[in-house]
Design a protein around this nucleic acid. Structure first.
Length: 412
DNA sequence: TGTCCACAGGAAATACGGGGGT
DNA sequence: ACCCCCGTATTTCCTGTGGACA
């Protein structure tokens, strides 16, 4: 009996799902899953919708001289994440590559992705690998040696060499060494005509640079503005068309998604993520994508952000949040002081056999949690009862519970 | 008006750890 | 393999502070 019930339920659910399919091709809701050529197709459609016109114009006119066999300067690109720097430049350089082929001009282009921070050594090593100069080394090879190898593989190449360095500001430590190699040394050692393209999401990345290096970079600057709501709508419509079945999107959904993403940072990736989550919810609920679902998706994403942030946070920060939640909940007024929280923290450290930090360090942790809005803390003076932070948790209780259980799981 | 609470938060000292040089 | 160096995390030490209370 029981079994049959379950069976029927499952079958019913599956049938229901089949009738209410929303997502046709999930991959188009997540760029990571698209292969290069598909990414470029999507991008082409976006460009066709007149998005990023100004930037495209600038970049192409910057590189145009190559086709007449004359030289052009380096290029620095600035823009926040999700403004399409990487894709746009990659696309244009590919195109340029084809055009050069047609014009029988030697052009080679390499893309160095520094989206995860790494020291000078790694960056150079990666660059060398891309140029087929050597394999990956952990260590045991000097910077000098690496540079030498890079130079020697390029020794015979006389055409244009375009190096696109993405997220330059991610080089820790001797950024100067890396850059001055690229900017000052490399051009002198190799016969090719070197054009550097730097991308970064910090406007000030070139500020604390060796002035000599800086002056060698006769840099042309180009700024990618965040997408506005209109651009985002165009981008989203393309995704809707590719990823979803027809007629599953309610009136006004796309503008709403665009508006929500635009209000934040104009980050296209976030907009697409929001659409994806809405679609997922709709499929689960067996309805069209409605405005309410978009709203819910926004909340989900927001909450996920908190949870993944705390999950990847250092253990001490997790403990601090745990103790803050615990202390606040056990207090009568839902407010407690730094001292109370710290006491709770010490207990928790004992329980979970973790080393505990000093009150001073703990106070910094609280400040950090406050900064990331995991909690509220405001300094208040209680006269002879001292001066302290009044700590309270400002999160929705559902999220608070989720956070708490995530943290606790980490300490099992 | 002075005292004193219970911390905040700055500065300097010190511990730590990973990676480079030899 | 070993040592050194440097950036970061944490500790130590310290000065500052607003208002209740006597």
């Amino acid at each position: 009996m029981e079994k049959n019930n379950v069976r029927n339920k499952i079958i019913g659910q599956i049938n229901h799902m089949l009738n209410y399919r929303i997502i046709r091709d999930r991959r188009f809701l997540d760029d990571e899953q698209l292969i290069r050529s598909e990414q470029l197709t999507v991008l082409e459609e976006i460009f066709n919708a007149n998005v990023r016109d100004r930037e495209i114009k600038e970049i192409s006119s910057h590189f145009a001289p190559i086709l007449q066999n004359s030289h052009t300067s380096h290029l620095a690109i600035w823009g926040k994440t999700g403004t399409g720097k990487t894709l746009t430049v990659t696309y244009l350089l590919n195109l340029l590559g084809q055009m050069c082929k047609e014009h029988k001009i030697d052009m080679r282009y390499e893309y160095l992705d520094l989206s995860t921070p790494r020291p000078c050594f790694r960056a150079l090593n990666d660059l060398a690998c891309m140029l087929n100069a050597c394999r990956h080394y952990k260590k045991g090879i000097s910077l000098e040696e690496l540079m030498g190898r890079i130079e020697s593989v390029l020794a015979d190449y006389k055409g244009y060499l375009i190096l696109f360095i993405d997220e330059v500001d991610n080089i820790r430590r001797d950024r100067d060494a890396f850059l001055s190699f690229l900017v000052r040394r490399l051009p002198q050692k190799i016969p090719s005509r070197l054009i550097l393209v730097f991308a970064s999401n910090r406007l000030d990345w070139s500020d604390n640079l060796d002035p000599r290096t800086k002056s060698f970079l006769k840099i042309n600057e180009l700024i990618f503005q965040p997408y506005n709501a209109v651009d985002l709508q165009k981008i989203l419509s393309i995704r809707v068309e590719k990823a979803l079945f027809p007629n599953v999107v309610a009136e006004g959904v796309v503008p709403k998604v665009a508006a929500m993403a635009g209000k934040n940072h104009g980050d296209a990736r976030k907009a697409v993520a929001l659409l994806a989550q809405s679609a997922y919810l709709a499929e689960k609920a067996g309805t069209k994508i409605t405005l309410d679902l978009v709203e819910q998706a926004g909340i989900d994403i927001e909450q996920d952000k908190y949870i993944s942030m705390i999950q990847t946070a250092p253990t001490q920060l997790q403990l601090a949040l745990w103790s803050a939640i615990k202390a606040v909940n056990s207090s009568s007024k839902n407010i407690c002081t730094t001292g109370q929280t710290f006491d709770t923290y010490i207990q928790l450290c004992k329980q979970t056999s973790n080393r505990s930090l000093t009150a001073r360090a703990f106070s910094d942790l609280i400040a950090e949690l406050d900064m990331y809005t995991f909690l509220r803390s405001k300094i208040s003076s209680r006269g002879r009862y001292g001066r302290t932070r009044e700590i309270s948790i400002g999160l929705p209780s559902e999220l608070e519970k989720k956070l708490l259980s995530t943290i606790q799981n980490n300490f099992l």
